Simulated scan of single mutants.
Amino acid sequence: MKQSKVQKGLFLLMLALIIIPILFPFVWMLMSSFKTQVDIISWPPKFIFTPVMQNYNRVFFEQNFLRYMKNSVIVSVVSVMLSLVLGLPAAYSIARYKQQKLSMFILIARLMPGISFLMPWYIVFSRLRLMDSYVALILSHMLICLPLVVWVMAPYFDSVPRELEEAAMVDGLTQQRAFTKILLPLSGPGVVTATTLSFIFSWNNFMFSQVLSQQKTRTLPIAVYNFLSYVEVDWGAVMAAAVTIMAPAILLTMFFQKYVVKGLTMGAVKG
């Protein structure tokens, strides 16, 4: 019994050592978003203070963050949906027909730094007069989402027994219908995982929006620049903006976490 308590205590200690460094920046950011500028830069740091809402007032009323949020939602949702439409069949094809060259090409595209695509994208969209448009941002964000969808879903499709499709086709379904009626429902947790990760990467993307967007289509990560100047940095507003940007991604992850974990731990043909 004594040894069990010691082991439990050591486990809790190790868990705290892992969790505290991860959570501390988020807690500090959340606290700072409710502090005045004087409290934020004070030393030693103030952990007991009077919360204020002026930082969020500047974010939502002075800088019109709702417009930037609308732009981020449109770009992220559409780019993820298009990536699913193209990526799911591609992942199925790679898994079923062992298209290693195609999978390697997609992996290379995923591993290449995004900045290497900026100049070609800028030239193409400038010539097509698509700068500062949703089309430019959506296509550029698909460079992030599409390879991610393929590489998450290809192993998932590969784990589904081929006999399920063969049985469905014996019953009269075409291969395309078997894919939509049999494989996709069985791969639901994988689709949720790919969708969640793709959305988070698209939502937090800074580089493409910095170059390809202007005032009309500026997304949330770029809007943080409104609180930076050569004279000073409005740290309270920056922290409030950061909380606003991170909240949807955190809530989405927390909401779908149980479905992802459940799907990854149960067998695809379990029933």
Rank of each mutant, 00 (worst) to 15 (best):
M266V: 11
L146N: 04
L102P: 07
A240I: 07
I22T: 09
L88R: 03
L212M: 00
V75L: 10
V80E: 10
V78K: 09
L252E: 03
Q3S: 12
N205C: 02
V269I: 00
L137E: 10
F24I: 14
A194T: 00
L86C: 14
R67M: 09
L251T: 13
Y56A: 00
F179M: 06
V75N: 08
I250M: 12
L128Y: 00
S42K: 01
Q63C: 06
V260D: 06
M112Y: 05
S159L: 07
S83R: 07
I200V: 10
L30R: 11
L12A: 10
F208P: 03
D234P: 12
W203E: 00
P189L: 05
V135I: 11
T50A: 12
V192D: 04
V224R: 13
M169F: 01
T253Q: 06
D132Y: 09
Y56C: 01
M131I: 13
F49W: 14
Q3G: 05
I22P: 08
V191L: 00
V211K: 07
V27P: 00
A223N: 03
F157C: 03
E232H: 11
T265F: 09
L173M: 02
M169T: 04
G271L: 06
A268W: 03
M69K: 02
K35E: 09
D132P: 04
V191G: 01
S133A: 07
M119C: 01
P113T: 07
L130V: 04
V27R: 08
Y225S: 14
T244G: 15
S83Y: 13
R162Q: 03
V80I: 08
